[in-house]
Nucleic acid binder design. Structure first.
Length: 545
RNA sequence: AGGGGUAUCGCCAAGCUGAUAAGGCAUGGGAUUCUGACUCCCACAUUCGCAGGUUUGAGUCCUGCUACCCCUGCCA
């Protein structure tokens, strides 16, 4: 038997349940409402639910909580699936809450028959006015004691479409004086004429979350229904529905709450993310600056890094704000282990190697790889180097090229300074060097001491990259977004053919704003599709320190 | 005197039935380096929201208190 150790309180609960023989299979579910794209916060939930499935050899269903047709959109369904797969998770069944509408209706009828639910004629405002408040009990509805027959008839008529939207609701008969607002005769069915993505116009009444969710869990045999903290107050209602609909024989399904993930200076609410998309502040839900999973994918974040991050932040009930640096750590860590390296010059100046001839090198894709692979890099008389890698007047501890100095071209020769040219403003435009023979790795003079190593690309076959600007967003008093663009149009030349993306991390300390995106990696795709190079640059840049 | 939660290092977070504060991130210092990256060393809470109490001994038990989060949708 493998020794499994719980790493958080939810796993501890699960393991106790397993040990005590309460169940022999763990079944969880991931229940997104299809009204937006998944973001990093969902990744935490995904990792908890699918993580339990993997760890305890159980099951996890993907279930769309589509009980409110007016808010949902089929567009999101596919994105959700794609993102879950991208993270590497597999669901057992793909289900929709709407699959259970008939059964939910039947359960509601049953509740009415047993005197546990009634049709209420109050308007939304009247319900609100009679609910009481945090310190005063609510008043019972005058329709609370209708006969079963009358309730049955009315509820059926609601279904038949005999009443206008909002004219009547079905309420659970619980306790108007309960200190828990959720238990003050909560509405469990409302009339809503909206075409449902899946059931069309079949229904004009729709169940509320609190009624629907325990039924969905019950039908699917969910053992652990894991959700976020704000549902703690709903648990008594969850249990009420569960028990009164005949579920919960073994105590399952059991609702467990954890603290949702929030991150410093990061917008995580779907409402605001949607606003960013709708206002055209970003190009869409997958804009690389978005904290969505698709945005992170676009940004070059490896899914494994996101998983490792979720694993590391743990699961607790304490509200907390994780620093973005923690996520970035796992991105760097994963990229360092798995990403192929490529040379990039962001702000190029010409580098002439006066005594050079054309050559081709095999350069390691990733020095950390277990099985080393290589890519070709061409070398010639005319190269580009980074402007910062040459200094006429070097700052203290400068480790790169200076007049009269030497430096190693990564993967190639050691070169020595000959001369340089400046434009009318005194900016360096070109540097000329000679390479020192026999200094390539493995050759006679390779052991020569140099101050540093610099990246370079061959001017003949380098490729232009698109460098995306970074930007800052301010959230003003009205909750609207104000975009602060900081234009920066470097050119980027990797020594591989094809597309590439580069985004930069920039500090953000001047305003009260939320940073929604930053650069993580450069990606280039070989023309033949053979190579995929990833360069970790800009992530932890300590140049010039 | 509404109810439900949470409080351990700048940020996460272990700490189960009391025995004298794990780990990661961040940070500072050093070594190493054909990526100023990575890696490797070293430093980093006499203290666990506060105040009392029980105990030989408390972050862990008891009693008060404080702070923050959630709840008055026919949203989820």
């Amino acid at each position: 038997m493998e020794e499994i150790k719980s790493t958080n309180f939810i796993e501890e609960i699960i393991e106790n349940d397993l040990q005590e023989g309460k169940t022999n299979e763990i079944i969880t579910r991931f229940p997104p409402e299809p009204n937006g794209y998944l973001h990093i916060g969902h990744a935490k939930s995904l990792c908890i639910n699918f993580g339990a499935k993997e760890k305890y050899h159980g099951k996890c269903n993907l279930r769309y909580d589509d009980t409110n047709p007016s808010k949902e959109d089929i567009e999101y369904v596919n994105s959700i699936k794609e993102d879950i797969k991208w993270l590497g998770f597999d669901w057992d069944q793909e289900l929709y809450a709407s699959d259970y509408f008939d059964q939910m209706y039947a359960f509601a009828v049953d509740l009415i028959k047993r005197g546990l639910a009634y049709v209420c004629d109050y308007s939304a405002d009247e319900i609100k006015a009679t609910r009481g408040d945090l310190q005063t009990p609510g008043q019972e509805s005058p329709w609370r004691n209708r006969t079963v027959e009358e309730n049955l008839k009315l509820f059926e008529e609601m279904k038949e479409g005999k009443y206008a939207d909002g004219e009547k609701v079905l309420r659970a008969k619980i306790d108007m004086a309960s200190p828990n607002m959720n238990m003050r005769d909560p509405v469990i069915y409302r009339i809503l004429r909206a075409t449902h993505e899946r059931t069309g116009d079949k229904w004009c009444i729709y169940p509320m979350y609190d009624f629907a969710h325990p039924i969905e869990d019950g039908i699917e045999g969910i053992t652990h229904s894991i959700c976020t903290l704000e549902f703690e107050d709903h648990r008594p209602l969850y249990d009420w529905v569960k028990v009164n609909c005949g579920f919960g024989k073994e105590g399952y399904p059991r609702q467990i709450e954890f603290a949702r993930l929030s991150m410093k200076r990061t917008i995580m609410s779907k409402r605001y993310l949607k606003k960013l998309v709708d206002q055209g502040v970003v190009s869409g839900w997958s804009d690389p600056r978005m904290p969505t999973l698709s945005g992170m994918r676009e940004r070059g974040y490896p899914p494994k890094a996101i998983r490792a991050f979720c694993e590391a932040i743990g699961v607790s009930k304490a509200n907390s704000e994780v620093d973005v640096a923690y996520l970035e750590h796992f991105v760097r860590d994963n990229l360092n282990k798995e990403a192929n390296r490529v040379m990039v010059v962001k702000d190029p100046i010409k580098l002439i190697i006066a005594n050079a001839q054309d050559e081709v090198y095999d350069i390691e894709n990733n020095p950390n790889a277990e099985e080393m692979t290589y890519h070709k890099v061409t070398f010639s008389k005319e190269l580009y180097m980074e402007r910062d890698d040459f200094a006429v007047v070097p700052p203290p501890k400068y480790k790169r090229l200076v007049p009269g100095g030497t430096v190693r071209l990564k993967g190639s020769y050691i070169i020595e300074y000959v001369s340089h040219k400046c434009d009318e403003n005194g900016n360096v435009t070109e540097v000329t060097c000679n390479y020192i023979p026999e200094t390539i790795s493995g050759q006679a003079n390779a052991g020569m001491k140099v101050k540093g190593v610099i990246q370079w690309v061959n001017a003949k076959d380098c490729v232009d990259l698109t460098l995306h600007d970074y930007d800052y967003l301010l959230l003003d008093g009205d909750g609207d977004f104000d975009q602060r663009l900081t234009p920066d149009s470097h050119k980027v030349y990797p020594n591989a053919k094809g597309e590439a993306i580069l985004r930069e991390i920039k500090p953000y300390d001047r305003f009260q704003f939320m940073r929604i995106g930053y650069y993580s990696a450069v990606k280039t795709y070989g023309q033949d599709g053979k190579y995929e190079f990833n360069q970790i640059t800009g992530l932890k840049d300590s140049y010039g320190k």
